[in-house]
Simulated assay, not measured.
Amino acid sequence: MSGTLAAAPARSGGNAFIRTVHAISTVCGWTAAAFTVIALFVTCHMIFVRAVLNQSTIWQTEAVIYLMIAATTVGLPYVQRLRGHVNVDLVPHMLPRRVRRVLAYVVLISTIAVMAVLAWYAFDVWHQAFDRNWKSSTVWAAPLWVPYLAMPVGFGLFILQLVADLVGLITGAEPPFGIEDH
């Protein structure tokens, strides 16, 4: 088998579009990390309020859930840029170069299509929450359009990174599945 066991981050090959998308995806990664750190501090605050002050919490649990959902969805493009998603590359390693390239196109286009459906429905849910002024059914009564916004934004930016990967494949900046031919 040729290639490395660990996938390398996506390359731009000097393409301005790909470099721009990579920069956006990196900002998404930093944003997702910030959401995770904020969720950690909110969790610590919640523990302090409950254990030390012996008071009930109102907004902390819900905020942590929303922050972690946002971190997960907004972090998708960054993880894709780093090739950090689960990748089973046994079959691509065994395929001839041309078949591997065709499979890479099929996988990228299929992933874009599935993510487009998810983004569409996430946008629809966000829009309904915004338009109908939905609020959470807790004491905090947070407006649900705020946390729901992370889903269409995250999925949309993930699609943008997938399109950049497709452009990289088309232009030859990125080999199929990151596997170099020797």
Score class of each variant (00 low, 15 high):
123 F>M: 11
144 L>F: 05
126 W>H: 08
140 W>Y: 13
140 W>I: 08
118 L>S: 13
108 L>M: 09
125 V>N: 11
129 A>S: 15
150 A>H: 03
142 A>W: 08
139 V>D: 15
110 S>E: 00
129 A>M: 12
138 T>V: 05
120 W>L: 13
106 V>D: 03
103 L>G: 00
133 N>L: 14
102 V>A: 14
110 S>T: 00
138 T>A: 06
148 Y>H: 10
113 A>H: 01
120 W>P: 04
131 D>A: 15
132 R>H: 12
149 L>Y: 04
125 V>S: 10
141 A>R: 10
114 V>W: 11
114 V>T: 12
118 L>Q: 11
107 V>A: 12
131 D>E: 12
115 M>H: 09
122 A>Y: 01
116 A>H: 06
135 K>Y: 08
102 V>R: 13
102 V>Q: 05
112 I>K: 01
142 A>M: 11
141 A>S: 12
118 L>H: 14
121 Y>T: 09
148 Y>L: 13
122 A>I: 09
101 R>L: 12
141 A>P: 04
110 S>M: 00
150 A>D: 03
132 R>T: 11
149 L>W: 03
149 L>K: 02
138 T>G: 06
129 A>I: 05
147 P>E: 05
123 F>C: 10
126 W>K: 03
144 L>E: 02
119 A>C: 15
144 L>Q: 06
103 L>A: 13
113 A>G: 07
103 L>P: 02
119 A>T: 10
116 A>V: 08
126 W>M: 07
123 F>L: 15
130 F>S: 10
105 Y>I: 07
138 T>E: 08
133 N>Q: 10
131 D>T: 14
123 F>S: 11
118 L>G: 15
121 Y>V: 04
133 N>W: 14
140 W>R: 04
145 W>H: 15
105 Y>P: 00
109 I>L: 15
112 I>G: 00
106 V>K: 07
118 L>C: 15
115 M>D: 05
103 L>H: 07
121 Y>H: 14
114 V>R: 02
105 Y>A: 06
135 K>L: 13
121 Y>M: 07
107 V>T: 14
102 V>D: 04
122 A>W: 01
105 Y>V: 06
133 N>Y: 14
143 P>E: 08
103 L>Q: 14
110 S>F: 02
133 N>S: 13
122 A>P: 01
139 V>H: 10
129 A>L: 11
110 S>C: 05
103 L>T: 04
104 A>I: 00
118 L>P: 06
139 V>T: 14
106 V>W: 03
143 P>R: 06
114 V>Q: 02
112 I>M: 03
